[in-house]
C-alpha cells in the first residue's frame, strides 16, 4: 500500500514536469528568453575585454571569477570536512 502511494506520487511529479515541459519552446533560437542581452555582450565584447577567445573561460575566470573563487572554496570545505570526519576521530580514539 505504502509502495503504491509512493509510486503514484512519483507519477504525479513526473506528470507535472512533463506538462510544463511540453509548454516550453521546442527549438531554441536566438530569440529565446534565455539568450538575452548579457550573453550578446559577452559574445561581442568578450575577446577585446578579456583577451580570451574561448568565451566560457572568459566568463569563468574573468566576468564571474568571484564565483569560481567560491567554487574552489567549496572544494576546500569538502576536503576539510572529509579530513575532520575520518582523521580527527582517530586520534581521539587512541587517546581514550
Amino acid at each position: 500500500m505504502k509502495k503504491i502511494i509512493r509510486l503514484l506520487l512519483f507519477a504525479g511529479l513526473l506528470g507535472v514536469l512533463v506538462i510544463n515541459i511540453m509548454n516550453m519552446p521546442a527549438i531554441l533560437s536566438v530569440d529565446a528568453p534565455s539568450y538575452n542581452d548579457s550573453i550578446d555582450h559577452y559574445l561581442e565584447h568578450g575577446v577585446e575585454e578579456t583577451g580570451a577567445t574561448s568565451i566560457i573561460s572568459a566568463i569563468l575566470a574573468d566576468y564571474r571569477s568571484f564565483d569560481t573563487l567560491g567554487e574552489t572554496i567549496v572544494l576546500f570545505t569538502a576536503i576539510i570536512a572529509l579530513l575532520s570526519v575520518l582523521k580527527v576521530g582517530d586520534s581521539t580514539r587512541k587517546e581514550g
Binding site: S34, I39, L43, I55, I56, I59, L60, D67, T68, E71
Partner: peptide, 11 residues
C-alpha cells in the same frame, strides 16, 4: 550557443 549555462554547470 549560449555560454552561460555551461559555466554554471562547470560549477
Amino acid at each position: 550557443i549560449n555560454p552561460l549555462p555551461s559555466v554554471f554547470i562547470l560549477t
